[in-house]
Amino acid sequence: MTPASFPARGLADRLTTLFWRHPRILLVLLLTPPLLWLGVVYLGSLAALLLQSFYALDSFSGLIVPEFTLKTYAQLFTQSNLSIILRTLLMASAVTAASTIIAFPIAYYAARYAKGRLKAAFYLGVMLPLWSSYLVKVYAFKLILAKEGIVTWVATSTHTDWLLTAALSLPYVGGNSLATSYLGTFTVFCYVWLPYMILPMQAALERVPTTMLEAAADLGATARQTFWTVTMPLALPGIIAGSIFTFSLTLGDYIIPQIIGNSASYIGMAVYQLQGTAGNIPLAAAFAVVPILIMLVYLTLARKAGAFDAL
């Protein structure tokens, strides 16, 4: 009787055995790289940022004094810095609100009515702007909105320039031309971030079961009642998810307000100028903490509203 012969076990075989016998080793091996990334690169840089914000710039030498102080945070509350924060917040809220209003009908149509080719065309139409460079789009808008640009030309040739003049003579948001006013900055922000609102919204609307709509109809609900009591609550998490994108992206952007608008600073621009031009990294870091805090509040509210229930 010959003993059973087994083929020699290779490295892979032995590793499989090891992992099968000690599943924890596999777990550690799999989780270490992403945890290192999250811990060192991501949280580490955040911690460095937080640390910097507790230092202060010596106003005489222009050097950073590495001693714990809250002076830098106090500087955030000077009038000019507060107005930067407020301006950014207002812009982010306005852009989010407008994106929601514009995106909803588009997402609703794409989710409920578009079929086949039309649906593909809708997806393509929403995604297409994301394929070209962000900078190209912004510079293109500078030309479109310029005083002697396409918008003015169209308005003049359709005799609707009184409308444009009226919009630009509005206090605060108006200006010399669309490209140098808050209206222009707002328009470009809406354009650039709109896809980030439409896509999650559409996904949420598609998940609303048609059976429920039919049930509502069977029970005698009007179209309006169905919309507000069935569709809207079920789609709300998607809307909030989209608003997180538009809100946080506007909060941090520093390119658009540099090219379009009246040169007034936003949080992102302030961070960019302070760390680069002034070498005032503590104040830049303190400014960078502001959107983090705002987003924490926003996300807490969003969680309460059930935006993450579907995750």
Partner: peptide, 29 residues
Amino acid sequence: PIADCKAGAGACVPYAQWVTDYMAVVGGN
């Protein structure tokens, strides 16, 4: 611009101050 100028040590407004204040001016403050 640096703080130590001909008028004396620490007598002039340094560049970091220029940056924050100019940003405020541009922001309408």
